[in-house]
Amino acid sequence: MGGSGSRAADYVLACSLAALSVAVIVSALAMPRPGGWGQAPGLFPLICGSALLVMAAILATSVWRRSPREEAAPDEFDTEEMSGLHLARILIVAGSVAAYALILIPLLSFFLATLVYLAATLWYFWRGWWVWIILISLATTIFLTQTFERFFSVMLP
């Protein structure tokens, strides 16, 4: 799984969590209380927000008590995740999926959008022979549309 988090990341998490908890508590207090607190819709968010605030404080305390030498060593895969160069590829993946779901599918049909997305992504990340790329993209798209639309009667986007 992922890394265990650096001191800085843990501090950011604790601070963000504290801010979120305060926002939840404030919004819970603003909710109506028709039959008193026992049945109020804000009761559970209030408890949950308070619990998260306490957890943020505990997390911050545990990070503060932890010396830098006790940082958990990231594995090889996680080290790459932290490099700046890697960020561009993450943005490409996220951007391509967003473009596929938000632009290509509404613009083209699911079939064509999937075909284009798969061919482009396989070409960029896999760099296989172009015939294989087209064959895999086409076979996957046909399999997905036929299985879900025809066999399971699932409406596709």
């Binding site: 779901a101 599918i105 997305y117 992504t121 396989l122 996957t140 699932v154 596709l156």
Partner: peptide, 22 residues
């Protein structure tokens, strides 16, 4: 590099099929 792109359309189908909206 081959498997992960193939999972993306599945994720989209699964998310869409849950309530039939984007």
């Amino acid at each position: 590099q081959v498997l992960m792109p193939l999972l993306v359309p599945l994720c989209v189908i699964g998310a869409y099929a849950s309530d039939m909206t984007m």
